Every structure is written in structure tokens, then in C-alpha cells.
Simulated assay, not measured.
Amino acid sequence: MEFRDTDGEDQDFAMLCNRLDSALDEIVGGKFQRSQYEQYNQRDSIHDVIVVYREGEPIGCGSFKMYDEDHAELKRIYVDPLYRNIGLGSDVVRRLEAKAKIKGYRWCILETGKPLEAACSMYKKAGYKIMPNYGQYMDMPDSICMERKI
């Protein structure tokens, strides 16, 4: 596996984000159900991205953006279904945390959803704890917000 640092303009990252969106549409019951979240997942505000490659093919990604001076918000974590359950998602999260720490952040936060059981499980195994919903997710009952000190 090769892990490349890039940014939100990366075309492989864009393609993987499209796959993530399609997968989310299936899990949560279509684009309409997910539409309230789209505005918070735009790539133009994401500058720190990792894309994972296997034999030159992009198979996973993750990113973070500044939430405030102490908190980096993890965004767009995705692993191709063929490569799940081997720790790749956790590896991406750890690498993102390391990058965030170097940039001076003390915490990583994230938002996931109740229907995303596999994601919730992975984040919990990575040491993330449920916190009160923050910011734009405060009034979204299907959101689950999590945090971890880095």
C-alpha cells in the first residue's frame, strides 16, 4: 500500500468521494436523506488529504480540515469494500491524526451517522468517544459526533 499526501483538488480523492457518496446513498436510503449533510462535505475547504493506493489504483482516502485552533475535523474517510476489515481505515485515521498533531491540533473530531455501524465501530476501536453533537450537527438526530485527544 502507498499513502500519498495531497489536497481536496486531487482527482483520485474526488473519485473516491463520489464512491463514498454513492455508498452513503445506499446505506441511508438515497440522496434525499443525505442532502442535509452535503454542504458540510465540500472538498474546497479540505486541504489535508491522504489517498491510499494499491498497485497504482486508489482504494481509500481520508482528510481533515480546521474546525477551530484546537480541533481538526476528520472528513471523507472511505475504503473500497474489497479492502475493508484489514485495518486500512484505522491506518488512514492514525496518519491523519499524526498530520493534525504536527499542525498543532490537540483533538480530532468527526461526525458519522447512526446507520453507519461499521464506521462507528472502527472509530470506537480507534479510541474515539461519543461527544455532544457540535456545530451544524447539533439538531441532526441521526448524527453521532466523536472526539479523540491526539
Rank of each mutant, 00 (worst) to 15 (best):
I59Y: 07
Y40V: 10
L82T: 05
I46V: 15
D25M: 02
E9N: 15
I150F: 00
D12H: 11
H71E: 12
G113W: 08
M15I: 06
K125T: 09
I144W: 08
I27A: 06
Y78G: 02
I46L: 12
A98E: 13
K125A: 11
D12M: 08
L88Q: 04
K114Y: 09
D10P: 03
T112E: 07
L16E: 08
Y128Q: 06
V49P: 11
G113E: 15
N133Q: 08
M122E: 09
D70W: 00
V52H: 01
K31P: 07
C17N: 04
R4S: 06
A100M: 05
Q33V: 13
Q136Y: 14
C17V: 13
Y37G: 04
P81N: 01
A98R: 10
Q42L: 14
S22C: 08
E38D: 13
M15W: 12
G62N: 00
A126G: 07
L24D: 13
L20T: 01
V52S: 03
R94I: 07
R43D: 14
E73V: 00
V93A: 00
Q33T: 11
Y134M: 12
Y83E: 05
D12Q: 07
D44L: 05
P132Q: 09
P141E: 10
K103V: 08
E9H: 11
R148G: 05
V93T: 04
D142V: 06
G62A: 00
V93M: 02
E38T: 11
K31L: 12
M131I: 15
R19N: 06
